[in-house]
Design a binder for these strands. Structure first.
Length: 570
DNA sequence: CTGGGGAAGGGGCCC
DNA sequence: TGGGCCCCTTCCCCA
């Protein structure tokens, strides 16, 4: 007995899950693009992947061996068994595919490509120029090898693996020759241990030297400008979307996020399949330049690397704001991956401490939110950066490395993401019922004093409820209370908050930070207000008086609970 | 044992 | 970004 389509259906489901980011537990960084996938699938497809995903949730691939376009094809191939063609000329594409497949130990795919190339052209070796790499397979191989040697000589350890051993034995296939020259393994292993060896030392992006310090870590996340200058095309509509109207990528190529409209000159930008979350060239370059001009801030007007200064509380022992400059764990690839990996090497595995933010905004709430989010929620030991894509909803916010692809919301853990994904059965990300929203009850709404304010004094009205505010910032702050997903997670317990201040305050309780001390008794408090309240114990002041019985209280809240006693039926 | 008050912790939210 | 205030809740003490 056998279900004929079982495997196919299973793969289909998995691919759909990949499209949604559901249960994805690994991120593959290719040059400037992120791809999400399932470890099991990758491990099943390649021994190389298997070794990579064994210990890491983030995989950096050697950009000399694979570019985002090719990797997207490969990922699609892994999940579907089908090789989708690109705009690239066939030979170039297959050549690049062969290189990448060899590198990734996807032997079936490599064989397929070889066969295809042989069929297409007998002179493949002389003609083929690597896609996006601009070299022939042969020269690519050689140059890569030399590059690797220059960069990593003497640093092979840890995962340095069977490939190099086999290479030394001279029994490698073409595929395997590539692999041995990959820096991936080195970086991979180093990233878990002493990734500094991968960081300042070399960049697979080919930029010179020290990218590790290329970020302007002192820069705080700026407020997001309004109105994107949409470059064009595919996803401009999503720029106008509220959080729930984020573009939903097609499921057949689930490889992450679209960056259409930017980086058009990039080698992958002309792909018809808008799935990469691609750090655009501009962004990437700005980083590179920045790294080259260490300490200088990039001048990209449109996109920028922003610091997610997430030391939760400076007063409370938050790390120095510029600590990132001295971060020890340089990562091999570009700044994003470096930072990602660095964060992965940190205390809270899934942190995405850096990202590139594009200052392209629609000026709507979601944009602001992302901006705010970017400046918030962070590990207590790392600065966070978020890559913000033009025309795309907020993606990975700080620690929220796990991003729901359909809506673009980020989550600090895969569990939370998975829980969130299930909510997509709901039409709306807002809990919006008649007269009830966001867990608030009607009574509270009706008692909302704000409603009595005139429209003149409070012109900024919430689109969800009837509350209105004096300024847009407060309105934005308020509107977050309607969101299903709270943007500010606690890095310790994962609890989510609508406001950073609340999260920061919450973090104090984790760490026992009580900056406010009573001069009388030495008792310490997490909040000034508590100290003020407490001081009444010493002064004997009881400013809160029950109008019914005359009872006096030091705390208003105790008066309130006392009043309940009066009013309760019992 | 129970209920009330005192004191405090923590979250929500507006300013 | 932090302060301030509101709310809910808990813990402890005591009558």
């Amino acid at each position: 007995m056998e279900l004929p389509n079982h495997a196919k259906q299973l793969l289909l489901q998995l691919n759909q899950q990949r499209a949604k980011g559901f249960l994805c537990d690994v991120i593959i960084v290719v040059e400037n693009a992120l791809f999400r996938a399932h470890k099991n699938i990758l491990a099943a497809s390649s021994m190389y992947f298997k070794s990579l995903v064994l210990h890491d949730n983030l995989i950096n691939l050697d950009t000399d061996m694979v570019n985002p376009t090719v990797f997207r094809q490969i990922l699609d191939f892994i999940y579907t068994g089908k090789l989708l063609t690109t705009d690239q000329p066939g030979e170039q594409n297959f050549s690049a595919l062969l290189t990448a497949a060899s590198y990734l130990q996807l032997h079936d795919l490599a064989a397929l490509c070889r066969k295809k190339l042989k069929r297409n052209s007998k002179s493949f070796a002389g003609k083929a120029s690597g896609l996006g790499v601009g070299r022939s397979a042969r020269s690519q191989r050689l140059s890569t090898a030399s590059v690797i040697q220059a960069r990593y000589s003497g640093s092979n350890e840890g995962l340095k693996g069977s490939h190099s051993k086999e290479l030394s034995k001279g029994k490698l296939s073409d595929d395997e020759v590539f692999i041995s020259s990959s820096n991936q393994e080195n970086c991979h292993s180093l990233s878990r241990g002493a990734s500094k060896n991968c960081g300042g030392g070399g960049s697979a992006n080919g930029s010179t030297g020290d990218q590790e310090l290329g970020l302007d870590l002192s820069k705080k996340s700026p407020s997001l400008p309004v109105a994107a200058s949409h470059d064009d095309t595919q996803h401009s509509e999503s720029q106008h979307g509220s959080p729930q109207s984020a573009s939903v990528p097609a499921a057949n190529s689930a490889s992450s996020f679209d960056e259409s409209g930017v980086g058009a000159s990039h080698s992958i930008a002309d792909s018809s399949d808008p799935m990469e979350m691609d750090l655009s060239e501009e962004c990437h370059h700005s980083m590179t330049e920045s790294s080259q001009r260490k300490g200088l801030r990039h001048s990209s007007r449109k996109k920028e690397w922003i610091k997610k200064d997430n030391a939760f509380d400076r007063k409370d022992g938050g790390k120095d704001r510029d600590e990132g400059e001295g971060l020890p764990n340089g990562i091999l690839l570009g700044p994003l991956s470096k930072s990602v990996e660095r964060s992965l090497a940190g205390s809270y595995g899934a942190d995405l401490p850096y990202s590139c933010k594009e200052e392209v905004e629609n000026g709507k709430e979601n944009s602001d939110d992302s901006g705010q989010s970017e400046s918030e929620s962070g590990g207590h030991t790392s600065a966070n950066y978020v890559y913000r894509q033009e025309g795309f909803e907020p993606v990975a916010y700080g620690d929220n490395l796990y991003v729901c692809i359909p809506c673009g919301k980020g989550f600090p853990s895969s569990e939370q993401l998975n829980a969130h994904v299930e909510t997509h059965t709901e039409e709306d990300l807002y809990i919006k019922e008649e007269g009830t929203y966001g867990g608030k009850d009607e009574a509270e709404d009706l008692s909302n004093p704000n409603q009595s304010y005139s429209a003149e004094s409070r012109p900024f009205k919430c689109s969800v409820c009837e509350k209105s505010y004096k300024d847009p910032a407060t309105l934005r702050q308020h509107e977050k209370t309607h969101w299903l997903t709270r943007p500010f997670p606690c890095n310790i317990c994962g609890k989510m908050f609508t406001q950073r201040g609340t999260m920061t305050r919450h973090m104090r309780s984790h760490l026992g930070l009580k900056p406010f001390a009573c001069e009388e008794c030495g008792m310490r408090f997490t909040r000034q207000y508590r100290l003020t309240e407490h001081m009444r114990v010493h002064s004997g002041e009881k400013p809160y008086e029950c109008q019914l019985c005359g009872g006096k209280f030091t705390q208003q809240r105790n008066l309130i609970s006392h009043l309940r006693m009066h009013t309760s039926p019992t």
